[in-house]
Amino acid sequence: MEPLATRAEPPQRLPALPADAGLTWRPLTLDDVPAWFELVTATEDADDAIERQTAAELADQFKGSWRDPARDSIAGIDADGAIRAYAFSVFRPVTEGTQAPYLVGAVHPDYRRRGVGRALVAWSEARARQQLATAEANLPARIRLFADEHNTGMRRLAEASGYGALRWYVGMRRDLSQPLPDVATPAGLRVEPYSKARDEDVRIAHNQSFARDHWGSSPVDAEAWALDVVGGEKFRPDWSVLAIDEATDRVVGYLMSGAYDQDWGPQGYTEGWTDLVAVRREWRGRGVAGVLLTAAMRAYAAEGMQYAGLDVDTDNPTGALGVYTRLGYQREKGSVLYTKEI
């Protein structure tokens, strides 16, 4: 491969943003979170977004040594000081796998069809190319955009900006009022609740199973794990479970859960959500994933959740879609990954 600094074709300057849209442009700051959250809520409601964000999750975008909002974000402010549009290029460099910044943004419904969205995609892509050019590891690279499958406006914008649909992810849910399956725990395996004492072992198991075998995944370092996996306000350690090899006392499978109550009103039901589930290669094919998922479903049901939910890459090579279907999960709305390969 050519050096990533060459392949990324980073611009010296970021493209100008519309001067005729009634907006002034500057980076986001932590003080902007309340106004930023108002914009995000308005756009999510207008677009019937599958997943909703909280103000705390937006504030988390200012944490992490790899984040630089002063350079990686931009916001459009109207004459009254309200944020009407924003874009952010989020990039955590990795040492193996794929260098893959992802672009997020939104335009208030009142400011759409003025070229603002397309200009923001161009701006954030240019910033992503600059970020890629600074990465130390010369790896395959792509720039990513995600769109809800039903959001035709966002999908048209991605395609008009030169992005191609590459992967489809489907949301699935399991009705917890229905009897849960009786899944036997394989011999030599112990299932126990997640504990902070096991956290580093879980991260290592993640990097050796999920990051190795799931398309597009890269290892997660300790800082990113602490912030993005177990440090979020919605993480539920009491709904998370581990599979332990009794012979070695090693984590060989795990399931991490969250309670995203901001989604429950718009979707019309309560739900325990499985953020991550994976099993090490040597333990696959023995029903370990089913054991973990059933244990989590029991934890969700015990707190009155109506459904268990998760999403899955439809091309997942581990056969996860079949596992979920056999456990009673049913397909719901999905999302699409758009990319430019670098």
Rank of each mutant, 00 (worst) to 15 (best):
Asp199Glu: 11
Arg212Lys: 12
Pro101Lys: 14
His214Asn: 06
Ala75Arg: 06
Lys234Ala: 15
Gln61Arg: 09
Ser65Trp: 07
Gly268Trp: 07
Ser65Met: 10
Glu44Thr: 12
Ala106Ile: 04
Gly290Val: 00
Ala320Gly: 03
Ala259Arg: 02
Ala147Leu: 03
Trp25Pro: 01
Pro18Thr: 06
Ala197Val: 07
Tyr86Trp: 11
Val202Lys: 03
Glu332Lys: 08
Glu332Ala: 11
Ala247Leu: 05
Ser124Pro: 02
Gly265Phe: 09
Arg174Gln: 10
Arg84Ser: 01
Leu293Arg: 10
Gly105Pro: 10
Ala137Gln: 02
Trp264Asn: 01
Leu23Phe: 04
Gly115Trp: 00
Thr24Asn: 08
Ala8Asp: 08
Asp311Tyr: 15
Gly115Asn: 04
Glu332Cys: 06
Ala122Arg: 06
Asp175Trp: 00
Pro101Asn: 09
Arg84Thr: 01
Ala56Gly: 12
His214Cys: 07
Asn138Tyr: 13
Pro11His: 05
Ala106Thr: 04
Arg71Glu: 08
Val116Asn: 00
Gly162Asn: 10
Arg26Ile: 14
Asp60Ser: 15
Glu2Trp: 04
Arg331Thr: 09
Pro317Ser: 09
Arg71Phe: 07
Gln131Pro: 01
Arg144Gln: 12
Ala5Tyr: 00
Tyr86Ser: 15
Trp264Phe: 00
Gly76Pro: 09
Pro18Asp: 12
Val33Trp: 06
Asp249Cys: 07
Trp168Lys: 11
Asp315Arg: 05
Arg174Ser: 08
Glu44Phe: 05
Arg286Ala: 12
Glu9Lys: 12
Phe235Tyr: 10
Phe88Asp: 13
Arg112Ala: 01
Ala308Glu: 14
Gly162His: 13
Ala137Pro: 02
Ala211Ser: 14
Thr98Leu: 13
Gln267Lys: 15
Ser195Glu: 02
Arg286Lys: 08
Arg203Lys: 10
Ala126Ile: 11
Pro101Phe: 07
Gly162Arg: 05
Lys340Ser: 03
Gly216Gln: 04
Tyr329Gln: 15
Lys63Cys: 04
Ile50Ser: 03
Ala100Tyr: 03
Leu292Asp: 14
